[in-house]
Every structure is written in structure tokens, then in C-alpha cells.
């Protein structure tokens, strides 16, 4: 079907249909959106670069805090151990058995969850 073969009557009828009007200047609206998109992309790239610095700093801080905490914990246990000899061994025993218990509990939860899914 070529252009000349179009139904002229139908074409005339359809040309009478409303064409619709844009409410605003599309060029400026679209270009503003494009610029905003580009700014957003640039900012995202910039923050992604910066986020590595923040992650690095946060990790260093976490290590430092852990170190301070363990230092105070050790000094606290050592000081009590002076008055109550053997406290450090008992504390260590409870800590280790607690950790093992927590670990076994986690394994048990995972296994039972998988069993219930089958």
C-alpha cells in the first residue's frame, strides 16, 4: 500500500479529529529534566567515590573501638582476678562455652529452617 493508496475519505475524516494541545513548552521542560538527570548522575558518581572513604574510615574506627573495648575488658578481668583468683579462667570458660552454644544454636536454626522448607 503506497501513500497514494490511502483512503482519501477516511483521511479527511480523521483530520477532523482533535489533535490535542500541549500544556507547556515541551523543549524547556524536557531539557530541564535532562540537565537534572545529568546532575544527579554526576552527584551519584561523586558520592560513590566518597563512600569508599567513609567505609574505610568507619572500618578503622570500628577496629579502634574493638581494640579499646578489649583492652578495658582485659584490664577489668585482670583487676578482679587479683581479688578473686581464678575469675579470669571462669570468665574465659563461660565466654568460650557461650560462643560455642550460640554457634550451635545458629546451625540448628538454619538446619531446621531448611528441613521445614522441604
Amino acid at each position: 500500500m503506497k501513500k497514494e493508496e490511502r483512503d482519501q475519505e477516511l483521511q479527511k475524516l480523521l483530520q477532523k479529529a482533535s489533535k490535542g494541545n500541549s500544556r507547556f513548552d515541551l523543549t524547556s521542560v524536557i531539557m530541564n529534566q535532562v540537565i537534572a538527570l545529568e546532575v544527579k548522575n554526576k552527584l551519584a558518581k561523586k558520592y560513590l567515590r566518597r563512600s569508599w572513604i567513609f567505609v574505610g574510615l568507619a572500618s578503622l574506627l570500628a577496629i579502634k573501638l574493638l581494640y579499646i573495648f578489649s583492652y578495658f575488658q582485659t584490664s577489668f578481668i585482670a583487676s578482679i582476678d587479683i581479688y578473686y583468683p581464678g575469675f579470669a579462667q571462669v570468665f574465659l570458660y563461660f565466654t568460650i562455652s557461650g560462643l560455642i552454644g550460640w554457634f550451635l544454636y545458629q546451625i540448628n536454626s538454619i538446619v531446621s529452617m531448611q528441613m521445614s522448607l522441604k
Partner: peptide
């Protein structure tokens, strides 16, 4: 192409407000 895009969008959605939104999103 904004004029042609608007006409085509209007042909599909038959509403000026929706056609405006369609054209904007299509260009983006």
C-alpha cells in the same frame, strides 16, 4: 521531533495531559 512525538503519543492515549507526560518520559 517534539511535535511529531506529541501527535503520536496523542494518537495512542487520546488525552493531551497524558500525551505530554508520555512525550517527556519518552525523550528522557
Amino acid at each position: 521531533y517534539k511535535g511529531k512525538a506529541f501527535s503520536v503519543a496523542f494518537s495512542v492515549v487520546r488525552d493531551s495531559t497524558l500525551a505530554d507526560d508520555v512525550v517527556q518520559d519518552a525523550f528522557i
